[in-house]
């Protein structure tokens, strides 16, 4: 029962898939964070007739399954004749998806800074941008970081869906091994353990940070 025909070479193949998972996660989170910061800032500080429509638009990626978004964008890029690889498409789709969540986190973080603190900063003679840079961002960062870590882990798990448009990431790699050696339970457990090893320590770190920073408030 405890013998397996999965070789070290197979494990290497699966780990290579894990590398792809991490690469997609990295680019998606990078794009998502940059866009999310921008959108979140706009939503927090701009007048309602800019913030509200932007909020509605950013709500769409959160209300449509990621799988459908991937398929739509993948076919749309062929329609407009852009020759992007599935890897680029996945990173862009996941990046936009992450930016929608990230903008919500950034907006929440900025709005969590009390108005009185900002007024105090202004009355000390800081300019509007100084107030944002020196007061609001450092304070908002504490609120934002735990949720941002959660978002990163969420995106990492969601990268499993890119197998649908033909990328061999961790889950697809393990599925290929399953097809060959016919031991789904064992191979999927290995894949699950790899996901777990990538996600669990960071999840603990996020929970720890959240607890620690709440104590100081």
């Amino acid at each position: 029962m405890f013998s397996t025909s999965m070789s070290w070479h197979d494990l290497g193949f699966v780990l290579q898939g894990a590398g792809v998972t991490l690469a997609v996660t990295f680019w998606a989170i990078l794009l998502g964070t940059v866009l999310g910061m921008l959108f979140g800032l706009i939503r927090a500080v701009s007048p309602w007739w800019i913030a509200a429509p932007l909020g509605v638009v950013l709500d769409v990626p959160r209300s449509v399954p990621l799988l459908i978004q991937l398929v739509i964008i993948n076919s749309f890029k062929s329609i407009i004749g852009v020759n992007a690889s599935p890897f680029v498409v996945s990173c862009v789709v996941l990046g936009i998806y992450a930016s929608a969540y990230c903008s919500e986190i950034v907006r929440g973080g900025i709005l969590a800074v009390p108005t009185t603190t900002r007024r105090a900063a202004r009355s000390l003679g800081m300019t509007y941008w100084q107030d944002l840079k020196e007061i609001v961002f450092p304070m908002a960062l504490r609120v934002m970081l735990p949720s941002w870590i959660g978002l990163t882990l969420g995106v990492m798990k969601d990268t499993a869906l890119v197998l649908w448009i033909g990328i061999i990431e961790l889950l697809r790699a393990s599925q290929i091994i399953v097809t060959r050696i016919q031991e789904p339970l064992f191979v999927l457990t290995v894949a699950g353990l790899i996901y777990f090893a990538m996600s669990f320590p960071i999840a603990r770190l996020g929970a720890w940070l959240e607890k620690r920073w709440q104590e100081n408030d």
Partner: peptide, 22 residues
Amino acid sequence: ETARNTPALLQIYMAYFGLGSL
């Protein structure tokens, strides 16, 4: 921790392919 730290798709695979081998 399993439910939260692995992809939902993996959990569905487990039910579909994994249980099959049992």
